[in-house]
Every structure is written in C-alpha cells, then in structure tokens.
Simulated assay, not measured.
Amino acid sequence: MIKIVQHNYRKARAIYQKLQFYYSVNWTKTLYFNFKKFPFGVAKQLPVFFYGNVKFTAITGKIQIIGPITKGMIGFGQPYEMNTLHKGIAEINILGAIVFRGNVQIGKDYFMYIGIDGYCEFGHMSSLASNAKLICIERVVLGNYARFGSESQIIDTNFHHMVNTQTGKKCKMTAPISIGNYNYASSRVTVLKGTKTPDFCTIASNSLCNSDYISFGYNILIGGIPAKFIKDSISRDWEGEKAALDDYLII
C-alpha cells in the first residue's frame, strides 16, 4: 500500500513539475519567434523557448542553429538559477547574425543587441545568467561551455570614437571578443572589446577583462580591474560537473 502511494505521489509530482515548467514558457513569443525566423521544418520543433516577458525590439537579423535540432534547446529567460522571479525587463534587438552551436541558456532579464554588421556565436552549453548584457557591433564568440554569472556584460565597442589629442588620430571603436571553451566567469564580470581568453579559463567576480590572455595558457585564473593573470593549474571541475550540468540544464 505504501509503495503504491509513493509511486502515485512521484507520478503526480512529475506531472506538476512538467505543468509548472510549461506554464513558465511564454508561448506567444516562442511560437512567433520560431515560425518567423526558421523554415517550417525547423520551426515546428520549437528549438527556441522564451520564458517570462520579453520585448522584441527587432528580430530582423539572421538566426542560425548548427547541429541537431531539439525542442527548447535554446532558452531565453530560462529558469535555471536560484532566483525564481522575472522583473520583466528582458529585451532583444537582433539586426545582425547570431549563431547557436548547440544548447544555450540565457537567464532572466537579459539585454541582447546584435548590430546590423555584428556576428555573435554561442558554443554548445554556453550561457549568460540573469541580468546579463551582450552588445555585439563587430564580433563576439563564446566557446563551448563558456558560462557567465549574473550581472555580467560583454561589449565589443566603446560606443563613441576616442581621439588621440596630440595626433588627432581616432582610435578603433570596436574589436572582436573571443571567449574560449570551458570558461567560467563569476558574477558581475565585464568583458570589453579585444578580449581573448584561452580554454579552461576562470574569471573572478567583479573583474574587467580588456586584453588578450591566450599567452598565459590553459587552466588559468584571471581577475581584477583590469583583469590580470593570478594563478595557473586551476579550473572548474568540468569533468566532475559536466554530466550533472547537462542533465539539469538541457530540456
């Protein structure tokens, strides 16, 4: 009798959790985006889910998924973090090109702007946590498992031209950003134009990255304002976490 009750309880709980999950999806924006941006054969599989409120300022750019298509593989506003509430301030403005190379998670209340000449690429299982900001005017590439904490921002432009007051020469306003595979950036990390990180790089909380860190090699910790090399032979335990991470985050 007890086993029957336990079985029924687990079954009811699983149904409740599934209903709760599907209730959190913004089906109006999800359906509109998928059938607006993808061929029918792809759109009907609903590869992109939107959760909570989001403003589509523009979605006229090119959106491409490279790899096997599965339902909900890309989640905007995906509720995978400890905080459970949306503020309802999420906004996307995609004028250029954005490419997804697998499953991708974007947390709550994000802002994403891809300029008309911009190219943005997300590797498999890359992510931006809640209140993240991504502005791509030229080129931003996140490698596989490049995961950023809450309130992080990735910006490849100065927004305004800077001038050498002695020579009158204008400085370049934009520069590509390249984040390596298996990068872990803690909360409130700012990545500015020209930043390049190697594979297996950890970025400390509240850091500002604005340089090429490739020469320091793999398995490094960087941090500070501006970020500098701190330590080598250190990495997030990807081998120990990867299976659990995939199981928890992939819809």
Rank of each mutant, 00 (worst) to 15 (best):
G123D: 00
Y218H: 07
Q6W: 07
T70H: 08
A244Q: 07
Q45S: 08
I2V: 15
I92L: 12
K108C: 01
Q105L: 01
K36S: 15
T195K: 03
Q166H: 13
T195E: 07
C201G: 07
A97F: 00
A132G: 15
G52T: 03
N158P: 00
F35K: 09
K87R: 13
I2G: 04
M162W: 08
K231M: 13
N131H: 14
S215V: 05
I66T: 11
T195R: 07
T190R: 06
E241T: 04
E121V: 08
M162G: 05
Y16I: 06
G77R: 02
K170C: 10
M125F: 15
N210P: 00
G107E: 03
Q6N: 04
Q64R: 13
L46E: 08
M112Y: 05
Y80T: 11
F159W: 06
N53K: 11
I155A: 01
E91V: 07
G102P: 12
T157V: 02
V140E: 10
T60C: 03
G77Y: 04
A132W: 10
E81M: 14
S207T: 07
D117Q: 08
N83D: 14
I234T: 15
P47W: 09
M73A: 07
I106M: 06
F122L: 05
S235A: 14
D247T: 14
I135S: 11
G180M: 02
K196N: 09
K228Q: 12
Y145V: 02
G107S: 13
M82H: 03
S207A: 12
T195F: 05
K71I: 13
P79W: 10
F38T: 02
C201D: 11
P39I: 06
